[in-house]
Protein backbone atom coordinates (compact mmCIF):
# COMPACT_ATOMS: atom_id res chain seq x y z
CA UNK A 1 0.00 0.00 0.00
CA UNK A 2 1.62 3.25 -1.08
CA UNK A 3 1.76 6.05 1.47
CA UNK A 4 -0.65 8.78 0.52
CA UNK A 5 0.77 11.88 -1.06
CA UNK A 6 -0.32 14.31 1.61
CA UNK A 7 0.40 12.20 4.67
CA UNK A 8 3.63 14.03 5.42
CA UNK A 9 1.93 17.29 6.24
CA UNK A 10 -1.20 15.78 7.74
CA UNK A 11 -2.02 16.72 11.31
CA UNK A 12 -1.22 14.00 13.80
CA UNK A 13 -4.26 13.82 16.04
CA UNK A 14 -4.84 11.58 18.99
CA UNK A 15 -7.73 9.83 17.37
CA UNK A 16 -8.21 6.16 17.79
CA UNK A 17 -8.54 3.97 14.74
CA UNK A 18 -12.04 2.79 13.81
CA UNK A 19 -13.44 1.06 16.82
CA UNK A 20 -15.18 -2.20 16.20
CA UNK A 21 -17.11 -4.21 18.68
CA UNK A 22 -15.15 -7.39 19.26
CA UNK A 23 -18.01 -9.44 17.86
CA UNK A 24 -18.92 -7.29 14.85
CA UNK A 25 -17.28 -8.40 11.62
CA UNK A 26 -15.92 -5.63 9.37
CA UNK A 27 -18.34 -4.23 6.76
CA UNK A 28 -15.81 -4.76 3.97
CA UNK A 29 -15.69 -6.41 1.51
CA UNK A 30 -18.22 -4.61 -0.63
CA UNK A 31 -19.81 -6.58 -3.43
CA UNK A 32 -21.90 -4.78 -6.04
CA UNK A 33 -23.66 -6.82 -8.71
CA UNK A 34 -25.58 -5.50 -11.71
CA UNK A 35 -26.31 -2.20 -9.94
CA UNK A 36 -28.68 0.06 -11.82
CA UNK A 37 -30.59 3.23 -11.08
CA UNK A 38 -33.06 4.87 -13.38
CA UNK A 39 -35.39 7.79 -12.90
CA UNK A 40 -38.12 9.06 -15.22
CA UNK A 41 -37.18 6.47 -17.81
CA UNK A 42 -33.55 7.58 -17.96
CA UNK A 43 -30.94 5.06 -16.94
CA UNK A 44 -28.43 6.95 -14.81
CA UNK A 45 -26.35 4.05 -13.53
CA UNK A 46 -26.39 0.68 -15.23
CA UNK A 47 -24.91 -2.76 -14.83
CA UNK A 48 -22.29 -1.67 -12.34
CA UNK A 49 -20.19 -4.45 -10.83
CA UNK A 50 -17.64 -3.62 -8.20
CA UNK A 51 -15.73 -5.24 -5.36
CA UNK A 52 -13.89 -3.27 -2.75
CA UNK A 53 -12.00 -5.23 -0.13
CA UNK A 54 -9.15 -2.97 0.93
CA UNK A 55 -8.94 0.30 2.83
CA UNK A 56 -7.24 2.34 0.14
CA UNK A 57 -8.35 5.61 -1.42
CA UNK A 58 -10.64 4.71 -4.29
CA UNK A 59 -11.29 7.71 -6.50
CA UNK A 60 -14.36 7.82 -8.65
CA UNK A 61 -13.67 9.95 -11.71
CA UNK A 62 -15.60 10.78 -14.82
CA UNK A 63 -17.26 13.72 -16.56
CA UNK A 64 -20.27 15.54 -15.15
CA UNK A 65 -23.33 13.34 -15.24
CA UNK A 66 -21.31 10.14 -15.29
CA UNK A 67 -23.14 8.95 -12.16
CA UNK A 68 -20.42 9.54 -9.54
CA UNK A 69 -22.62 11.18 -6.90
CA UNK A 70 -25.41 8.75 -7.59
CA UNK A 71 -23.10 5.78 -7.14
CA UNK A 72 -21.89 7.10 -3.79
CA UNK A 73 -25.47 7.57 -2.62
CA UNK A 74 -26.42 4.08 -3.73
CA UNK A 75 -23.44 2.50 -1.96
CA UNK A 76 -24.15 4.48 1.22
CA UNK A 77 -27.82 3.48 1.10
CA UNK A 78 -29.23 6.99 0.69
CA UNK A 79 -30.91 5.86 -2.53
CA UNK A 80 -32.45 2.50 -3.29
CA UNK A 81 -31.19 0.93 -6.52
CA UNK A 82 -33.71 0.06 -9.22
CA UNK A 83 -31.65 -2.96 -10.26
CA UNK A 84 -28.93 -5.16 -8.83
CA UNK A 85 -27.60 -5.66 -5.33
CA UNK A 86 -25.19 -3.99 -2.92
CA UNK A 87 -23.75 -6.11 -0.12
CA UNK A 88 -21.46 -4.90 2.62
CA UNK A 89 -19.99 -8.17 3.88
CA UNK A 90 -23.31 -9.74 3.00
CA UNK A 91 -25.56 -6.99 4.40
CA UNK A 92 -27.58 -4.47 2.38
CA UNK A 93 -26.74 -0.79 3.02
CA UNK A 94 -29.28 -0.29 5.79
CA UNK A 95 -29.16 1.84 8.90
CA UNK A 96 -26.80 -0.51 10.70
CA UNK A 97 -24.33 -0.43 7.83
CA UNK A 98 -24.61 3.36 7.55
CA UNK A 99 -23.73 3.70 11.23
CA UNK A 100 -20.30 2.32 10.33
CA UNK A 101 -19.85 4.65 7.38
CA UNK A 102 -19.89 8.39 6.89
CA UNK A 103 -20.42 10.71 3.97
CA UNK A 104 -19.29 14.23 3.18
CA UNK A 105 -21.29 16.14 0.61
CA UNK A 106 -20.17 18.68 -1.97
CA UNK A 107 -22.02 21.41 -0.12
CA UNK A 108 -21.50 20.76 3.59
CA UNK A 109 -24.75 20.30 5.49
CA UNK A 110 -24.13 21.88 8.88
CA UNK A 111 -26.66 22.13 11.65
CA UNK A 112 -27.65 25.56 12.91
CA UNK A 113 -25.63 25.03 16.04
CA UNK A 114 -22.10 25.59 17.26
CA UNK A 115 -19.12 23.90 15.64
CA UNK A 116 -18.69 21.67 18.70
CA UNK A 117 -22.42 20.83 18.79
CA UNK A 118 -22.27 19.68 15.16
CA UNK A 119 -19.71 17.10 16.23
CA UNK A 120 -21.36 15.96 19.45
CA UNK A 121 -24.65 15.61 17.55
CA UNK A 122 -23.09 13.11 15.14
CA UNK A 123 -21.39 11.26 17.98
CA UNK A 124 -24.66 11.00 19.84
CA UNK A 125 -26.38 9.67 16.72
CA UNK A 126 -23.66 7.03 16.61
CA UNK A 127 -24.32 5.99 20.18
CA UNK A 128 -21.10 7.36 21.67
CA UNK A 129 -21.53 7.74 25.44
CA UNK A 130 -22.00 11.31 26.62
CA UNK A 131 -18.75 11.56 28.58
CA UNK A 132 -16.75 10.41 25.57
CA UNK A 133 -18.39 12.76 23.04
CA UNK A 134 -16.72 15.95 24.18
CA UNK A 135 -13.27 14.47 24.29
CA UNK A 136 -13.55 12.92 20.85
CA UNK A 137 -15.03 16.09 19.37
CA UNK A 138 -12.15 18.15 20.79
CA UNK A 139 -9.55 15.76 19.37
CA UNK A 140 -11.06 15.95 15.89
CA UNK A 141 -11.39 19.74 16.07
CA UNK A 142 -7.69 19.90 16.86
CA UNK A 143 -6.89 17.73 13.87
CA UNK A 144 -9.08 19.90 11.65
CA UNK A 145 -7.51 23.09 12.95
CA UNK A 146 -10.89 24.28 14.16
CA UNK A 147 -10.31 24.36 17.92
CA UNK A 148 -10.31 28.14 17.97
CA UNK A 149 -13.82 28.33 16.52
CA UNK A 150 -15.36 25.47 18.53
CA UNK A 151 -17.93 27.77 20.11
CA UNK A 152 -18.85 29.67 16.95
CA UNK A 153 -22.02 29.05 14.97
CA UNK A 154 -21.10 26.50 12.32
CA UNK A 155 -22.88 28.25 9.48
CA UNK A 156 -21.00 31.52 9.76
CA UNK A 157 -17.63 29.82 9.16
CA UNK A 158 -15.82 30.33 5.86
CA UNK A 159 -16.45 27.81 3.07
CA UNK A 160 -13.16 26.05 3.74
CA UNK A 161 -13.79 25.85 7.48
CA UNK A 162 -17.31 24.54 6.87
CA UNK A 163 -16.03 21.71 4.70
CA UNK A 164 -13.29 20.91 7.20
CA UNK A 165 -15.94 20.71 9.88
CA UNK A 166 -18.00 18.38 7.69
CA UNK A 167 -14.96 16.14 7.20
CA UNK A 168 -14.15 16.35 10.91
CA UNK A 169 -17.69 15.29 11.74
CA UNK A 170 -17.33 12.27 9.48
CA UNK A 171 -13.95 11.53 11.04
CA UNK A 172 -15.27 11.77 14.58
CA UNK A 173 -17.62 8.83 14.14
CA UNK A 174 -14.68 6.57 13.17
CA UNK A 175 -16.21 5.21 9.98
CA UNK A 176 -14.91 2.06 8.39
CA UNK A 177 -15.82 3.54 5.02
CA UNK A 178 -15.89 7.24 4.20
CA UNK A 179 -17.65 8.57 1.10
CA UNK A 180 -16.76 12.02 -0.16
CA UNK A 181 -18.69 13.67 -2.97
CA UNK A 182 -16.59 16.40 -4.61
CA UNK A 183 -15.58 17.68 -1.17
CA UNK A 184 -13.37 20.47 -2.49
CA UNK A 185 -15.32 21.52 -5.59
CA UNK A 186 -16.09 24.93 -4.10
CA UNK A 187 -12.80 25.56 -2.30
CA UNK A 188 -9.65 27.49 -3.10
CA UNK A 189 -6.28 25.68 -3.34
CA UNK A 190 -5.25 26.33 0.27
CA UNK A 191 -8.56 25.11 1.67
CA UNK A 192 -8.46 22.16 -0.71
CA UNK A 193 -5.02 21.22 0.58
CA UNK A 194 -6.24 21.21 4.19
CA UNK A 195 -9.19 18.99 3.35
CA UNK A 196 -6.95 16.63 1.39
CA UNK A 197 -4.57 16.39 4.34
CA UNK A 198 -7.47 15.40 6.56
CA UNK A 199 -8.63 12.76 4.07
CA UNK A 200 -5.11 11.31 3.92
CA UNK A 201 -4.93 11.19 7.71
CA UNK A 202 -8.28 9.42 7.92
CA UNK A 203 -7.11 6.90 5.37
CA UNK A 204 -3.89 6.32 7.32
CA UNK A 205 -5.99 5.24 10.27
CA UNK A 206 -7.47 2.38 8.32
CA UNK A 207 -10.64 3.85 6.87
CA UNK A 208 -11.54 2.92 3.30
CA UNK A 209 -12.11 6.09 1.28
CA UNK A 210 -14.39 6.38 -1.74
CA UNK A 211 -13.90 9.83 -3.22
CA UNK A 212 -15.78 11.23 -6.19
CA UNK A 213 -13.94 14.06 -7.87
CA UNK A 214 -13.56 15.73 -11.21
CA UNK A 215 -10.34 17.38 -10.07
CA UNK A 216 -7.65 15.30 -11.77
CA UNK A 217 -4.96 16.89 -9.62
CA UNK A 218 -6.80 15.69 -6.54
CA UNK A 219 -7.31 12.24 -8.04
CA UNK A 220 -3.54 12.02 -8.66
CA UNK A 221 -2.65 13.32 -5.20
CA UNK A 222 -4.98 11.10 -3.20
CA UNK A 223 -5.99 8.24 -5.44
CA UNK A 224 -4.58 4.76 -5.00
CA UNK A 225 -7.16 3.14 -7.20
CA UNK A 226 -9.17 4.79 -9.97
CA UNK A 227 -12.74 3.88 -10.86
CA UNK A 228 -13.58 5.56 -14.14
CA UNK A 229 -17.28 6.09 -14.75
CA UNK A 230 -18.80 7.19 -18.03
CA UNK A 231 -22.51 7.49 -18.81
CA UNK A 232 -23.51 5.51 -15.74
CA UNK A 233 -21.16 2.62 -16.42
CA UNK A 234 -17.88 1.60 -14.82
CA UNK A 235 -15.54 1.73 -17.81
CA UNK A 236 -12.22 1.15 -16.18
CA UNK A 237 -10.72 0.18 -12.89
CA UNK A 238 -6.99 0.34 -12.34
CA UNK A 239 -4.26 1.29 -9.93
CA UNK A 240 -3.97 5.05 -9.93
CA UNK A 241 -0.42 5.00 -11.26
CA UNK A 242 -1.41 2.79 -14.17
CA UNK A 243 -4.50 4.87 -14.98
CA UNK A 244 -2.63 8.15 -15.06
CA UNK A 245 0.21 6.60 -17.03
CA UNK A 246 -2.22 5.49 -19.72
CA UNK A 247 -5.88 4.48 -19.38
CA UNK A 248 -6.83 1.24 -21.05
CA UNK A 249 -10.23 2.35 -22.29
CA UNK A 250 -10.64 4.81 -25.17
CA UNK A 251 -13.08 6.84 -23.08
CA UNK A 252 -10.58 6.96 -20.23
CA UNK A 253 -7.87 8.19 -22.56
CA UNK A 254 -10.19 10.80 -24.03
CA UNK A 255 -11.24 11.93 -20.54
CA UNK A 256 -7.68 12.24 -19.27
CA UNK A 257 -6.74 14.23 -22.35
CA UNK A 258 -9.64 16.58 -21.66
CA UNK A 259 -11.51 15.57 -24.79
CA UNK A 260 -14.46 13.85 -23.11
CA UNK A 261 -17.20 16.23 -22.11
CA UNK A 262 -20.18 14.07 -21.31
Amino acid sequence: MAPSAAAGSAPVPEIAAPRRAATAPPILPLAVRGLGYSADGASLVSDLNLDIADTRVHVLVGPNGAGKSLTLRLLHGLLAPTAGTIRWNGAPPDRRVRLRQAMVFQKPVLLRRSVLANLTYALRAHGVPRRERHQRARAVLDAAGLSAVAGRAARVLSGGEQQRLAVARAWAVHPEVLFLDEPTANLDPAATRMVEDMIAAIRDQGTAIVLATHDMGQARRLGEEVLFLHRGRLRERSDAAAFFAGPQSPAGRAYLAGRLLA
Binding site: L78, A102, M103, V109, R113, Y121, V173
Partner: peptide
Protein backbone atom coordinates in the same frame (compact mmCIF):
# COMPACT_ATOMS: atom_id res chain seq x y z
CA UNK B 1 -29.46 13.18 3.29
CA UNK B 2 -27.09 14.24 6.04
CA UNK B 3 -29.40 13.01 8.77
CA UNK B 4 -29.95 9.70 6.99
CA UNK B 5 -26.20 9.38 6.48
CA UNK B 6 -25.81 9.79 10.25
CA UNK B 7 -28.50 7.12 10.68
CA UNK B 8 -30.59 9.48 12.80
CA UNK B 9 -33.97 7.85 13.53
CA UNK B 10 -37.05 9.64 12.17
CA UNK B 11 -38.30 10.85 15.54
CA UNK B 12 -34.91 12.35 16.44
CA UNK B 13 -34.68 13.86 12.97
CA UNK B 14 -37.98 15.67 13.51
CA UNK B 15 -36.78 16.96 16.88
CA UNK B 16 -33.59 18.16 15.18
CA UNK B 17 -35.53 19.97 12.46
CA UNK B 18 -37.75 21.71 15.02
CA UNK B 19 -34.76 22.75 17.11
CA UNK B 20 -32.77 24.01 14.12
CA UNK B 21 -35.80 25.95 12.91
Amino acid sequence: EQLRSLAVPRASAIATLIWDG
